[in-house]
């Protein structure tokens, strides 16, 4: 009976170590999106002078699409009509753009999977506006999204992380600034 116990413990240890070594745990959260929108392609891709007609590089800024970041609590995900401003005519041969066009034709919105959020139980009332106006770069809190093909959660939005920045920037660390 004793050997059984030893064997079962060994098996459990093996399973746990396999899970850890396989990298399932600790890998940044990277949800599959309904449309394979590529942030890198829209922001950082450098234009190729030889193929500027067939392969354009829009080189957008964050706030071109997330246009309410400096005005409201939410940075907002753009309405599909914003995508269609360009994709009505551009790259209409791509399957992902056709998926987008189909959604737009039904007057629906893609069900984007959220990458960053704050649990409701945390009672945190975060607002984008003051952070953007204070000149905090989007990448400070969201990681190098402009280099990502699919957005990953690279930054851990824990309270200690918020407080650290607030202390460095000598802004208020009063609890009721965020919690109310």
């Amino acid at each position: 009976m004793r050997s059984w116990k030893v064997i079962s413990v060994l098996i459990a240890v093996a399973i746990v170590s396999v899970i850890f070594l396989s990298g399932v745990i600790g890998k940044p959260y990277e949800p599959v999106q309904p449309i394979a929108f590529d942030h890198w392609l829209h922001t950082s891709k450098q234009p190729d002078p030889n193929q500027s007609d067939t392969d354009p590089a829009p080189q957008l800024k964050c706030e071109d699409c997330h246009e309410h970041a400096d005005k409201s609590r939410y940075a907002t995900i753009p309405n599909v009509s914003k995508c269609m401003q360009c994709h009505e005519t551009m790259k209409t041969d791509r399957p992902e753009v056709q998926k987008l066009a189909a959604i737009a034709a039904r007057s629906e919105q893609p069900a984007w999977a959220r990458v960053y959020w704050i649990d409701k139980s945390a009672d945190v009332f975060f607002t984008h506006k003051p952070h953007i106006r204070a000149g905090v770069d989007c990448a400070v809190c969201h990681g190098p999204v402009d280099q990502m093909h699919r957005v990953r959660r690279e930054v851990d939005h824990s309270m200690g992380w918020c407080i650290e920045c607030h202390r460095q920037k000598k802004v208020s660390v009063d609890c009721s600034i965020c919690h109310r």
Binding site: A122, D123, S172, D174, C175, S176, H179
Partner: peptide, 15 residues
């Protein structure tokens, strides 16, 4: 519950 620098008696529900 603590006193904020704005003279408010604040209550932090999480704490």
């Amino acid at each position: 519950t603590y006193h904020s620098d704005e003279g408010l008696n604040a209550q932090v529900y999480n704490r």
